[in-house]
Every structure is written in C-alpha cells, then in structure tokens.
C-alpha cells in the first residue's frame, strides 16, 4: 500500500529537512497502514498485510545490526525462531497467555544474543557472517530434534492475543495489533539509530579502528547492536506464532535470513523508511508473483543483481548528514564561510 507514496517523497526528500520528513513520513505510513483494511479486508489481504508488517519488524531489527552497525548477520532467523518457539512452548504446553510470554522472550533473546555475540563479535567481519549462519542452522536443527519443540512437526494451536479481555485473535484484530506493535518497533529502532548509541554504531560501521581510537568500547557497542536486533527478532517471532497458530522448523531456514537481509539492503542500509519499504516489497512481491511460481525466485535473483549494480545504496538510501539538525548545519556553514573569509584575503 505504502508503495503508492514512495515516488513523490523520494524526489521531495532532497528538499526536506530530515526530522520534518521523518515525522510526516511516519504518520503517513501509519495512516496508510491503519486505513488499508477499509479498502480491502478479505482474509487474504489481511494475512498478506500482516505478514508484510511482521517482515517490516524483522527488517527494522536486522537494520540495527547490519544497517547501523555494519555487522553482517546471515542467521537472523534464529532470533525470530527463538521468539516464536519460546512463546509457543509456554503458550501451548504451559497455558500462558501470549502477552505474558513477552518478558521471557526478551530475556531469551538477550541471552541468545550474548551467547552467540559474546565470543564472536571480536572476530573479523567475514567470519561473523559464517558464524551467524551456523548459529541459524544450529537453532533450526535443534528445534527440529527436540521433543519439547514438537520435533519436525513443530507446535500448533498457539492461541491468539487477548488484551484486557478483548480478543484480538481475529484477522482484523491481529492486523491492528501488528500495526501498533510494528509502528512502535519502527519508531524505537529509528530513535535508537539517532541516539548516542546509534552514533557510536555508525562510527563503528564507517571506521572501527577510528571509533576505538576515539574511546568507544567497540566490543560492547557491537554487542548492544546485536542484542537490540535479537530483541526485535524475538518479539516478531511472538506475532508470527500468533498469526500462523502453528510454527515448524521449515519456517526458519537460511532462506528467511537471506530474505530479511535483502529487504534491508534493497531498501537502503541504515535508512528507516528505506528498510520499511524494502521489507514491504520483498514480502508482497512473492504474493504478486504467485501465478508465476516457477519464475519468481529466478526473477528475484536477477532483480537483486540489477538493483545492486545500478542503485546499490538501496531504493531509499540513508543520508550521510542525517545526524545533524538543520540548525547545526547552518551554523557549520556559517562557521566554514567565516573561516574561508579569513583565509582568502
């Protein structure tokens, strides 16, 4: 739905101040998401849109790790799986309401993030890719082999979400739950990206050695990014379980991790509107190509190459100056101009 608005603001974005742009963009996006069901509310449309929202959440979470901090994570689906399985097991085997599992999922995601990130974040970046990939496989295979996770059949009968006695498990209720949660998640991630921590992440992405030299504890900051991504992924997992009511290991393969990564890169690493757009694109495209099932992954592959060659900064790139407010910029300009004057005569 949002794609309709993509073209005009892209051109306009060159003119707009970043902050202002973000505020209105977010509102427009939210309005579109909130109004979409009034246009079409068939079960199919709602399920596709809910999936798209979940994908947005995953992409925004991965964006913290890959986009902000520049750490290549090829096993992001692992955190997604941890969230889905922890909440699913607690809900079906121990009868917890889904909302009550949220704190446990967050703890589990943080622990997993520390366990995998702790020893490996000191490694060279390429090794991190293979280690995270291996971690993704470990989680999936473990879920496939254990009895408590239901083995290869997985868990079924996961209840929907109820909040203060209101049943939100229907397609419409679930959709709006996702709209709210994902909007908060997007906002939260964008805020994080602009925070002090976010600046440290970007610094590390641009130049880790310089960041270290400037007194940033790069290891801890990277770990923070990793844990942040883990929490986002875990929470998305809960919604995933609530949406599908059944989860099984084939839903958490490497293909998923690759698709989420593609959404981030295609949209524009580090750019919140870009990543949201990329996620919607990647998630809805296969549905649009449903008729051409045989061709879709082929087209997909070609598309990725073409986009990378001709527009590698992504559909909606992050801008280099985004951390500065307009006033800062103006003052910097004045300052530079003043300096120049001093030098020229």
């Amino acid at each position: 739905m949002t794609t309709n608005f993509a073209t005009s603001p892209t051109r306009a974005s060159a003119l707009f101040d970043r902050l202002q742009q973000n505020r209105y963009l977010g509102l427009i996006g939210l309005a579109v998401a909130a109004l979409a069901p009034f246009i079409t509310a068939t079960n199919y449309a709602l399920s596709v849109m809910t999936s798209a929202l979940l994908f947005v959440m995953l992409a925004v979470g991965l964006n913290i790790v890959v986009g902000y901090c520049g750490l290549l994570d090829l096993g992001y689906a692992a955190f997604f799986a941890i969230g889905a399985y922890v909440s699913g097991v607690l809900a079906t085997r121990y009868g917890w309401p889904l909302l009550a599992t949220v704190p446990v999922v967050i703890v589990a995601a943080v622990v997993a993030g520390i366990v995998i990130g702790g020893p490996t974040l000191r490694l060279r970046s390429d090794y991190l890719a293979i280690v995270t990939l291996g971690f993704g496989e470990i989680i999936r295979i473990t879920a496939n082999n254990l009895t408590i996770t239901g083995g290869p059949s997985g868990i079924y009968g996961i209840p929907g979400i109820t909040l203060l006695g209101i049943d939100l498990s229907g397609p419409v209720g679930l959709y709006y739950t996702c709209v709210v949660v994902v909007a908060l998640a997007v906002l939260g991630a964008a805020r994080l990206g602009r925070s002090r921590l976010g600046r440290a992440w970007r610094f590390i992405r641009e130049d880790e050695d310089a960041a270290e030299a400037m007194g940033i504890n790069t290891y801890r900051v990277k770990l923070a990014a990793y844990i942040g991504g883990a929490i986002w992924g875990g929470l998305a997992g809960i919604l995933f379980g609530a949406q599908l009511s059944a989860i099984s290991p084939p839903s958490f393969t490497f293909l998923w991790s690759a698709l989420i990564l593609m959404a981030v890169v295609l949209g524009g690493m580090g750019s919140t509107p870009g990543v949201v757009l990329g996620a919607i694109f990647i998630s809805v495209l296969p549905e649009l190509l449903r008729e051409a099932a045989d061709y879709r992954y082929f087209v997909f592959g070609i598309l990725l190459i073409v986009v990378m060659i001709f527009r590698r900064q992504g559909l909606w790139p992050a801008r280099a100056v985004e951390r500065q407010s307009r006033r800062d910029l103006r003052e910097a300009e004045k300052h530079d101009a003043g300096k120049a004057k001093e030098v020229v005569p």
């Binding site: 045989d294 082929f298 997909f300 592959g301 190459i305």
Partner: peptide, 24 residues
C-alpha cells in the same frame, strides 16, 4: 570498490538466479 555487503547481496542474487534458472 562497492561496500562488501552490496557485493555479497549480488552474490546471493546470482545464486538464486543460477539455481532457479537451472530449474527452468
């Protein structure tokens, strides 16, 4: 000369294209 991540994505794309091209 592009960022490593972009090249890696291209490689993932190439992988898809070869696999599903062969499937066709």
């Amino acid at each position: 000369g592009a960022p490593r991540l972009s090249v890696l994505i291209t490689a993932v794309g190439a992988s898809f294209a070869i696999e599903y091209g062969m499937r066709l």
